[in-house]
Write a protein that binds this DNA or RNA. Structure first.
Lengths: 335, 335
DNA sequence: GTTAATATTGCAAAGGTTTGCAAGAAATAA
DNA sequence: TTATTTCTTGCAAACCTTTGCAATATTAAC
């Protein structure tokens, strides 16, 4: 049905090996003949059979972009940004296969299927998958968190970022600060926890004086958690949220109670989703550029696949983005 | 390197054809032997070489999920929902390759590479891609809009949906309604335009009395457009937006100007993103369930690929979701 | 026990490509 | 002209499966 190099060879009156060499410039082919073959291939609408190439070279042109899950518990923003970042680097050299690790059937991973994997892991349940990939020798890069000692990673300074934003709140005079953390078992949560706690203890805050609620990093959970905090502690002047989505929820919970942001309650986030900077309530947050992280990971993977040398971890700073959801306590009386 | 059926055959003392038959239950194999072969395969960690299977069967296990673009102009919400919908149906039977049609290199499409395509087209620039796929005989389903007479589609009642929400505004007594449309060249925009216009003329509204601004379906454009509308027409009581994202922007633009939603200005959306129902400002909108659309499309594609019969178009209703961003004009004086 | 029918198995080809090897052609050197 | 080197080219094997066909083993029927 489809045009093969044999068809081209027959038409051009050469052997198919010559066609193959002409097509991908591997061996030497007489210039004129090469031109002619390329022209014929084009006019016949030849498309290389990827399956055959993969079989022969035992190399695929697929890159797996692996998320812990595709369900509602992954943030649409992050997913989108990661795709943008990866695409920007990979272009059309490879196909990008979006995989949900929680749906993986153990034992079905194959080197001939994936030239490399980009792992966007959120949970330790992904370990089995990662282990399988490692056993099969598939090049892997972890983006967003370290997952395994042998897997190069792009990591951002979660701890330092959170420290910066907590410091900022404290510098602005806030002392009664509520915290909305994310899923406690995630590494990102633990690092961010360490970060805010480090700042807090440096400023001499007492653990008991910091009320903490837990969300799941999604909008609605932030709204509920903020509600609980505000209802239980009417002396709070600020709420530090472990990500932007929950911070958005917290803003709503605050205004729902007739309180103003930032006049009555200051709120901070983490991620700097683009939507966080749009509204009139422009979130003070920590920039964690998912596009950049993903792009960096893709670059590393490409290098890894092509040169074979294990890339070194990449460490990205997180920048504090000061906007208008944090008030200065020195300049006003307590509520 | 990797384990092949020959290795299994050698170990089990049978021919590799027998192993093949045992493995995928095609021919008859003595029960005891079959068990043994499966056991050996498992213990040796056998993974079928997809490339070889694809080559032999000239059938791939990849489904292309094709967006017009992956850049910032695709909505993260929709992208996410579509992925969820497709995954729910496809599971792990196929790999899902996310493709950006604007990055496609013409002539590189191949039946052996894609078992089928799900087309989420937003612009006519995708036509070249679709035409190539059609010429190559790759099964395709269009989701979200009709793209080609020969391509079965899952379409929702854009026009009817917009008619419903415009009707609702008019029933509530609004007569000075501003409109924020999306990119004028998109089919969805035209259909939605027809819908609101049909309702408007049925109620005897004059074209000149309806100010229209154009956004690009993203948040920020809605904010800007609403700003223009409000600044230029201080008698507006409602703004009808062509999607939820722009409606969110419009809400912000409204509150930025010290106006309240819905007391001063009513606002409606289209899409019913899950985030639209979370805040205290819960958007009145039209439900357009992307998860459902994508799932339906995936089901059709599967049927198409397996049975070969061209599926019929699927038509989904769009439901008006009344929430709290529309006020009743009869109950209050004009602003 | 013989024949016929059926169940099980192996052989070999095929699918489209790449590539080592050897042969042939052309160019250079003597 | 002949010997040597360098380009070009074709042959054939290999990558791993699936599957039609023929061969063999097993069972059933008489």
């Amino acid at each position: 049905m489809a045009v093969t190099i044999k068809d081209i060879a027959a038409y051009a009156g050469v052997s198919y090996s010559t066609v193959s060499r002409a097509l991908n410039g591997s061996g030497a082919v007489e210039e004129a003949k090469k031109e002619k073959i390329l022209e014929i291939a084009r006019s016949m609408g030849y498309v290389p059979n990827q399956a055959a190439i993969m079989l022969k070279k035992s190399k695929s042109r697929n890159i797996g972009l692996c998320f812990s899950t595709i369900s509602k518990s992954t943030s649409p923003y992050i997913l989108h940004d990661v795709l943008i970042g990866v695409y920007g680097v990979i272009g059309s050299d490879y196909h990008i296969i979006v995989k949900a690790m929680d749906m993986h059937e153990p034992g079905t991973l194959n080197q001939s299927n994936f030239a490399g994997l980009l792992i966007m892991s959120q949970t330790d349940r992904d370990e089995e998958f990662v282990e399988e990939a490692r056993a099969k020798g598939i090049p892997m890069i972890a983006i967003s968190r370290r997952i395994h000692s042998g897997v190069p990673a792009v990591v951002t300074d979660e701890k330092g970022g959170m420290e910066k934003v907590m410091d900022y709140l404290l510098e602005q005079g806030h002392r009664r600060i509520g915290v909305i953390e994310g899923n406690p078992n995630l590494e990102a949560t633990m690092l961010r926890h360490e970060g805010f706690w480090q700042a807090a203890s440096r400023w001499g805050l007492d653990a008991k004086s910091i009320p903490i609620e837990y969300g799941n990093y999604r909008y609605n959970s932030g709204r509920l958690a903020a509600g609980k905090l505000l209802d239980a502690h009417n002396d709070l002047t600020a709420i530090l949220c472990f990500n932007d989505e929950m911070a958005m929820g917290a803003i709503i919970a605050t205004t729902e109670r007739g309180l103003k942001v930032p006049e009555d309650i200051s709120i901070t986030g983490f991620d700097n989703l683009d939507i966080s900077g749009y509204a009139d309530i422009r979130l003070t947050t920590v920039e964690r550029n998912s596009i950049q992280i993903a792009a960096e990971g893709a670059r590393m993977l490409l290098a890894y696949m092509q040169e074979g040398a294990l890339p070194k971890d990449v460490w990205l700073e997180n920048r504090l983005v000061k906007r208008n959801t944090v008030s200065n306590q020195q300049q006003r009386v307590n509520r």
